[in-house]
Design a binder for these strands. Structure first.
Lengths: 264, 264
DNA sequence: CAGTGGTCTAGACCACTGG
DNA sequence: CAGTGGTCTAGACCACTGC
């Protein structure tokens, strides 16, 4: 490891020079720097989603720090949902290919059913097209207007009732090769497919929620009257490094379901 | 402190007997038990919102554990937003009487305004009535049907535009003495008033969000057409100990604002 | 300057998992 | 049983605040 710090060369704040007029570099504790190094390895794909990362003692040896310092770094990565700790087994790179993770991004729950074990959503892909990014889509995805993007539209149904209409935009380059067939033949979460097929892991997302009336298109696909109130959920998802990687606009029927949010 | 554990009497798992057939008590680390003790003091009002709690060394001495153990307990209380740490000063009981805390519960942001410095909401109380709890309100607040409750209705406006219509139910007993005048003459967050006047601190909340059409009443108060899509936000707020203390149903106009949610 | 929280270490021991 | 993460301790030192 060329970048491994040596004991005689600890990474210290204020090291090196900086432009006059700029603020002095903030103090950065060792464990934060270790966290940064582990993060770099995650981004670089040194350990893939589902993989076990080296043990705390191994990492402590690698970075020449104490186990406690590595521990604190991993603690933060765990609360960021980037890794998962399993006592007695090890620490693993988080993945969307797990049942209990599904509802971290899909927050629409049935009003009644105590358990959400009323089956998974039935999915129907409407189309998957190659387009040029509009100004708005480009801005949000960090592209330039006219850049290649993929657009996917699909409907999710629960118990036969069409409930969610989604329009998804993906940057063309990282998702080269994604086709309707790939999507249609896949079972399991779409974000798991992104991980396994394109090496793109969604890490966090930001949603803007509004109430809107169904237009003719949405009304038809969701089997409601035109003007029927729907939840509009616009989600921008980010991969490592705060890079936006997916723009998604969902229209949710909330007749018998609701969007659940916990404030704390 | 009658309940302070002594060094010869550490609180250990499996202590005491338990009913046959029940599961063996789960292992509970020391720091969790310390957290529990601190929590009890918070609930009992030993330290009030805004107060500084004893230093880590003081608490370590009081509970006869190491500073590191107290530290981990306080760490969890801090991530639960029950206390706030301030380096060099101390650890303080969290309070809603702070500017930057406001938007932890009110998540409606302007679509455009980069900064939310377009002023606070103008508030108008419509009414404040003493009622008997309906079955539904009683169930959610953990009361019995017919128990005394307070109902407050109010409208929040931004820049003169009525935007939020709220209906609030409070259990009668803890909020005895709350009147329209109290509410109307108060500036500052309602939850701060609850803390200072009634000793009730809201700790977390759960929201159910739907899209609905405005009824005649809401349409009039929010100055929109009947049937206009509105966000319905039903919030149940809890105080310490997971005790529900407020039920609130808000109708939000989302023409120029949106409900923001961060997924991570 | 003293007092607070924040970092880092080294080491002991515990709880959990799987072979 | 060995290997993993989880807890707990004791002590040193650092960064920040306010007097």
């Amino acid at each position: 490891m060329a970048t491994t710090p040596t004991p005689s060369d600890p990474i210290t704040p204020g090291e090196g020079s900086f432009a006059p007029g700029s603020v002095a570099p903030a103090f950065s504790p060792l464990y934060q720097q270790i966290k940064g190094l582990i993060l770099r390895s995650l981004q670089a794909g040194e350990w893939k989603p589902g993989d076990m990362i080296p043990s705390e003692l191994d990492l402590a040896a690698r970075y020449k720090v104490s186990q406690g310092t590595v521990r604190k770094a991993i603690d933060e990565l765990a609360t960021d949902n980037l890794v998962v700790r399993r006592q007695g087994k090890g620490t693993f790179v988080a993945t969307h290919a797990e049942q209990h993770i599904q509802f971290r991004f899909l927050r629409l729950l049935p009003d009644q059913g105590t358990l959400d074990e009323q089956g998974l959503a039935e999915r129907r892909i409407i189309d998957c097209r190659r387009l040029r990014a509009s100004a708005e889509v480009a801005r949000q995805l960090g592209l330039r207007t006219g850049d290649a993007v993929l657009q996917v539209r699909r409907v999710l149904a629960f118990g036969g009732t069409p409930t969610i209409l989604e329009e998804i935009w993906l940057p063309g380059t990282p998702f080269k090769g994604l086709t309707l067939d790939t999507l249609a033949s896949d079972k399991g979460p779409m974000y798991a497919l992104f991980e396994s097929q394109f090496g793109v892991r969604m890490v966090r997302a930001s949603e803007k929620i509004k109430a809107v009336g169904a237009d003719a298109d949405a009304a038809g696909l969701l089997a409601v009257a035109e003007g029927h109130p729907l939840l509009s959920v616009e989600r921008l998802s980010y991969t490592y490094n705060d890079t936006p990687m997916e723009l998604r606009r969902g229209l949710y029927r909330t007749d018998t379901r609701h969007y659940r949010n916990e404030l704390s």
